[in-house]
Design a protein around this nucleic acid. Sequence first.
DNA 1: TATATTTGTACCCTAATGGGTATAAAATGA
DNA 2: TCATTTTATACCCATTAGGGTACAAATATA
Lengths: 69, 69
Amino acid sequence: MNLADFVKDKRKRVKLTQPELAEKAGVGLRFIRELEQGKQTLRLDKVNQVLQLFGCEVGAVPHTTKTDT
Amino acid sequence: MNLADFVKDKRKRVKLTQPELAEKAGVGLRFIRELEQGKQTLRLDKVNQVLQLFGCEVGAVPHTTKTDT
DNA sequence: TATATTTGTACCCTAATGGGTATAAAATGA
DNA sequence: TCATTTTATACCCATTAGGGTACAAATATA
C-alpha cells in the first residue's frame, strides 16, 4: 500500500474530512490533497506529521511490485 | 531503525562512499550527507531514489519508540 | 431530481530544499 | 608519526514545496 492510499484509508476509517485531517496534523489542506493524490515531491517532515496521527512514521519498506497484495 | 541509519548501514555493507552512493542514486552528495544525518525536511522523491538502490522505498511503518530493537 | 458535502485544480507568494563547490575535520591505514 | 581517504560544514543560487484561497468537479444524501 502506497502512502497516498494508506493515508486516505486511515482518514476514512476515522471519518475525517481532508480539512479536518489537515487541521489535526497541523499541515495545510493542500498538502493533504497532494499527499492523498500521490505527489512524490512532498517533504518528509510534513508526511510524518500526518502519519503520527495514525501511529506511524516514514520508514524504509521492501520495494513492492504491482502484483503484490 | 530510522532512515538515516538505515541508509548509512546499507551503504557501508556494500562498501560505497557517500560520493559513490550519490552518483549511483542520481542525487547530490549533499543530499546523502543530510539524509544520513537525519535531516527531517528532505524530499520524498529524493529519498526514494536512494532507497531503490537497496530494494526499498518510503512507506508508513509503525511508530517505534526508543526502546525498540 | 435538487441540495449539501467533499474533493480536485489553479493562482500568488515566501521560505527553504538541493545542487555544486571549497575547506575543515575526522577517520583510516601504513 | 604522517599521508590518504572519508565525512562534515558553509557559501551562493535556481527551483519549488507548502500555505492560503477561490472555484469547479465529483460524490453523497434527501
